[in-house]
Amino acid sequence: MTLNVIWVVVDRTGDKVATVSLELLSKARQLATTVEAVTWGDPSQIAEVVGAHGAQTMHSVGDLGGGLPGPAVGAAIADQVRSGSSPDAIFIPQTYNGRDIAGRLSARLDRPVLTNIVDVEESGSGLITEHAIFGGTEVLRASFTAAGPGLFVIRAKSFAAEPGTDGAATTDNWNVPDLASTGAAKIISSHVEESEGPKLDEAPVVVSGGRGLGDAASYQLIENVAKLLKGAAGASRAIVDAGWVPYSHQVGQTGKTVKPTVYIACGISGATQHMVGMKNSKNIIAINKDQEAPIFSIADLGIVGDVKKVLPQLIEALEKRN
């Protein structure tokens, strides 16, 4: 191990820890002697799972009082670094809150930040990051050049979350300095968009639809196939932007990263920003009427055909088997 201490930001909703944070903890444990978690809210609720994934200690900035995590967590970490208890690296999940925390922290510490990281490896006394660029056709490797802890913002599914046998993390509280107006945004209500079946980023089967479906109503075909295969229904950004399906279905650069056993892309061209989110699926099946569609270049099985013909036939056949 080349590093002594890594801090990992643990993103959470109540007692539910974002899986990507567990992935980062598991990786940090391989790289550093000491792994400490940083979170907000009641730390005792999640001390067990965070401990099992490698953190000996967990610091919490406490109740946010309706505020967003970015300013409070960013400022608290910056104070700790400045007061001398600086780690060698800070791992931050590339989530909504994680990106806010990274931006705030970077400006407060006057430290650069690397985002969209898909892998890190040890090199000499530091870390080298990997980034998938141009839709994953090329890999860019980068590193920090100045002293001080590097801020690493890492995408979901870059590492496996591996619980060990370690006990719960010991917890303590970190002070949040006066945020002045930077902390002024307050959450007044939270809304959950219900979805049936397994979660998109955890499902073993993902069936996604794109603009090739033709209209919003045809998304039902995607949902039916997903349900029959006990999978989740995904989407390209084109049809999310068009309002056919909620954003929570989006797969890709700005949406979810998925890595299922099989990904079935229906009427999706395979734009680079879409492929970044699904190209690491174990198996890829694509249906597209254009045989030149880029998605075919990464598909294990490609069907050149009309989704409106192929999907109803597939649904009928799957229904017969059940």
Partner: peptide
């Protein structure tokens, strides 16, 4: 205060079998 160390082609995922739907896709 960051630098690009290298840029290399990603391990390519090769295309598999492509079939044209003739009603049996």
């Amino acid at each position: 205060r960051q630098q690009v160390v290298s840029v290399v082609p990603a391990e390519a995922r090769s295309a598999g079998e492509i079939v044209t739907d003739d009603g049996e896709g």
